[in-house]
Amino acid sequence: MAKTVLLTGGTGFVGKHLTDVLIDNGFLVAILSRSDQKNTPSITYYKWDLNKNFIDPEAVLKADYIIHLAGEGIVEKRWTKNRKKDIVESRVKPIDLIFSVLKEKNKTLDAFISASGVGIYGAITSHKICDETTPPADDFLGTTCQEWEKAVDKIASLKIRIVKIRTGIVFGKGEGFLKKIVPSFKAGFGAVLGNGKQYLPWIHIDDLCQIYLKSILDEQMQGAYNACINDTTTNSRFSKTLANLFGYTIWLPKVPAFILKLVLGEMSVAVLKGQRVSSEKIQKAGFEFQFTDLEKTVVSCLN
């Protein structure tokens, strides 16, 4: 009998792609939704409402695996006090709701797999390469990811295998990060942000989905794994590559850091800072990235 994977955030960028991958690999998919959705032969929708602390317990009880992708966008709005609270709670609350059902119903899972972020290492730029043993930072991005992962650890207390996928910038065709940035470059107005030296740890959506699939199938996977390419891509290199693909050399001056700070406030650190991140652990677990060349990857997302 086919096993069921329950997704939070199943209708988002990663969730939509992952749903297709799971179905192609013989899994049934269940998705938590705030609105009524029509079921299909491969997808079942269940209601939940974080504002009311409600989740349909059947969604959890019928799941063999749960993948937690839900969370407010990090760079969608300025980081006001309330926005920061929403960012953290949108990641932690779903886990708390699921934990309550698991514990109350004495339900077990084959695995609980959660997204996390390489932001756990902090909004700083240095030549140090961060791996999964690097201490978390105490800035907003670092503490957000810590709270996120701490909530996941509660699931581990129920003797359930947990995997945390610390994700970098996700590239996909017409979606995600590129959807926001491509229009200005396509129009000939691309520019380097700040000094351009901040690293840009990235991963293609197809590779990310395959990592999630592996985390289901490989029972040896446990704990945190970085999900991004370990290369020397900086904001400057990425910007020049993208401009070149559209047939021009960047002519605009670099966007000064103080301008970005005025426009974005504290959130500006998300685009002005960036660490190199190691992919050694996931590769040692047997995963092979299919997208490792920056230019070829971006081209595949533009065509």
Rank of each mutant, 00 (worst) to 15 (best):
V263C: 10
R91Q: 07
I169C: 11
I160H: 05
L158H: 07
T292D: 05
K105G: 08
R276C: 10
V170L: 04
G223A: 08
L97S: 11
L178E: 06
L260R: 03
Q290K: 15
T241W: 12
N244R: 15
A257V: 12
V92W: 00
D138N: 05
G223M: 06
G142N: 01
I282E: 02
V5C: 13
R78P: 14
G122M: 02
E149L: 06
K261E: 03
L242G: 12
E76G: 10
R78W: 11
G168R: 02
V75C: 14
S33W: 10
R166Q: 04
Y65I: 06
L245I: 01
I155R: 06
L217H: 04
T80Y: 12
L242H: 11
N53I: 01
F289C: 00
K159H: 15
A63I: 00
L264Q: 03
K179T: 09
L193M: 07
K164N: 08
I98C: 11
A2P: 15
F54N: 07
L22D: 02
K164I: 01
Q210L: 09
V170G: 09
P136E: 11
M267Y: 09
M221T: 01
K164D: 04
H68Q: 13
I66W: 06
G119I: 00
K16C: 12
L22F: 01
P183M: 00
L6Q: 04
K284E: 13
L102W: 00
F238G: 01
G196E: 03
N230Q: 15
